[in-house]
């Protein structure tokens, strides 16, 4: 489902990724760990084409990315299959919770407004926020916003979900509610890659842990071996 081979990337003459290779099978959860600045988030952002790379290759959800800039059409197809959840949630501030979730199915997949809304309500139900369907993001707590963001990414029914430090901006109580949702997804067999600092969570949810240091893979293997 995910193959990264010999990936390298430089930014302003500094190597941010160096010969990174990893693989994630369908239904597995890969945790990317390591200190700040080790290249975890950059690697994750390469996986859905938000960043380009210099050499090597990526295959994700059946789409192949090559070095250099990517064709917009390829990225649009790839991103339908690869969802992403951001550290800062990035909910659409002008839309209600359910419309945040329903926007992409309606605009990208061409669902009718009613069908898109129904899908949105189902997913909000799944993250426990159905009663907040019509609330604006600004009126929700951080944990609630992140759960809406997860529902929004799931609305495209992606084959792979990417999480970029999904709980770093949250206090412990909110962190717990978001992690609960992610663990639930793992149990349902969703293929995921999660950048995290939370080793306890990685141990609990991940089937594979990759530790990065200074842009290189320091260690990788089952959680029990790496952490």
């Amino acid at each position: 489902m995910i193959t990264v081979s010999s990936l390298t990337k430089s930014r302003a003459h500094v190597r941010v990724l160096e010969d990174v290779s990893l693989a994630g099978a369908e239904g597995t959860v890969t945790a990317l760990v390591g200190p700040s600045g080790s290249g975890k988030s950059t690697l994750l952002r390469c996986l859905n084409g938000l960043e380009t790379f210099d050499s090597g290759g990526i295959t994700v959800g059946g789409h192949r990315l090559t070095p250099g800039s990517h064709a917009p059409a390829l990225l649009e197809r790839l991103r339908c299959d690869v969802g992403m959840v951001f550290q800062q949630f990035n909910l659409f501030a002008h839309l209600s919770a359910v419309n945040n979730v329903a926007l992409a199915p309606r605009v990208v997949l061409g669902l009718s407004s009613a069908d898109a809304r129904a899908r949105g309500l189902d997913l909000l139900d799944r993250v426990g926020l159905r009663s907040f369907a019509d609330a604006r993001p600004a009126t929700l707590s951080g944990g609630q916003q992140q759960r809406v963001a997860i529902a929004r990414a799931l609305a495209m029914r992606p084959r792979v979900m990417l999480f970029d430090e999904p709980t770093s901006a949250l206090d412990p109580a909110m962190t717990a509610e978001v992690l609960e949702v992610i663990v639930e997804l793992a149990r349902d067999g969703q293929t995921m890659v999660v950048v995290t600092h939370d080793h306890a969570f990685a141990k609990r949810a991940a089937s594979h842990v990759v530790e990065l240091a200074a842009g290189r893979i320091a260690r990788q293997g089952p959680p029990a071996d790496v952490l």
């Binding site: 859905n48 938000l50 917009p72 990225l75 649009e76 197809r77 991103r79 339908c80 969802g83 992403m84 951001f86 800062q88 990035n90 909910l91 659409f92 501030a93 002008h94 926007l103 992409a104 605009v107 990208v108 963001a149 929004r152 990414a153 609305a155 495209m156």
Partner: peptide, 25 residues
């Protein structure tokens, strides 16, 4: 800028992101 990235990450094209997310805001 996160609004634009979030739109793209959902498979919206640049123009769809402008039309539905950036311009309304």
């Amino acid at each position: 800028p996160g609004q634009f990235e979030a739109s793209l990450s959902l498979g919206l094209s640049k123009w769809q992101a402008l039309r539905h997310v950036l311009v309304p805001q």
